[in-house]
Amino acid sequence: MRVGLLAGALLLVPAPALAHAFKSGAGAWEAFVEGTAVVLAWPPTLIAMLAMGILAGLWRPRETGPRDGMVRIWPFLILGQVAGLLLSAATLPALGWAPHLVGLLTTLAAALAPGRLPAMVKALAFATGLAVLAGALDGHPLGSLDIAVYAGILFGANLGVAIAAGLVTLALDQWEKPWIAIGFRVLASWGAAILILQSAFEARY
C-alpha cells in the first residue's frame, strides 16, 4: 500500500521531456540531486525501477533464502547500468524508448509470472539497469556531464529498485498472507497499463 502511494505521488510529479536538459554550472550537490531526480521523476524510468523491485521482492529463492531476491539480481542490475552508461556514448535515437519497453516487459513479468524463471529475472535486471541509464542519459554523450550528475543517476537507479524490493520483502515477511503478493502483482499490472498509455501520449504529443 505504502509503495503504491509513493509510486502514485511520484508519478504525479511533472515529467521532463525526453533528452533531459541538465543545468550547467551548478554545484556538486545540486548536480547530484538533479541526476537522482531525473530517474525518479520520469515515469518510464520510475515504473521500470519499481517493477524490477517488485519482481526482485516477489522472487524468493528457496535454495539461498526467501530474502535474497534483490541480492541475487543486484550484480546484473549494476552490470546493466555500466552497459547503459557506456551505451550513452553511442547516442542512438531509440535509447529514449528503452525504459518504456523494458519497463513494460518487467511489469508484465512481475504481474504474470514473478519468480518462476530466475534466468528471466536476472536478464530483466540487466535490461532495467541498461534502459534506465541509457534513457536518462539520452542525448548526452558519455563524459558530457558533471561527474556528480552521473553519481546521482546511479544512486537514483539503485535506490528506486532497492526501496521497492525492500518494501515488498518487508510486507511479505510481516504479513504472511497470499493477498499481499497478489496486491503487488496488481500494482505491477497498473504500472504496465500506465506505461502503455505514457508511450501513446509521448508518441502523440
Binding site: 502483482r185 499490472s189 504496465a192 497499463a193 502503455i196 508511450s199
Partner: peptide, 12 residues
C-alpha cells in the same frame, strides 16, 4: 490484472 493491461492498449 488482465483488464487494465488490455484496457490501456485500447486507451493507447
Amino acid at each position: 490484472v488482465v483488464f487494465p493491461l488490455v484496457m490501456a492498449f485500447g486507451g493507447a
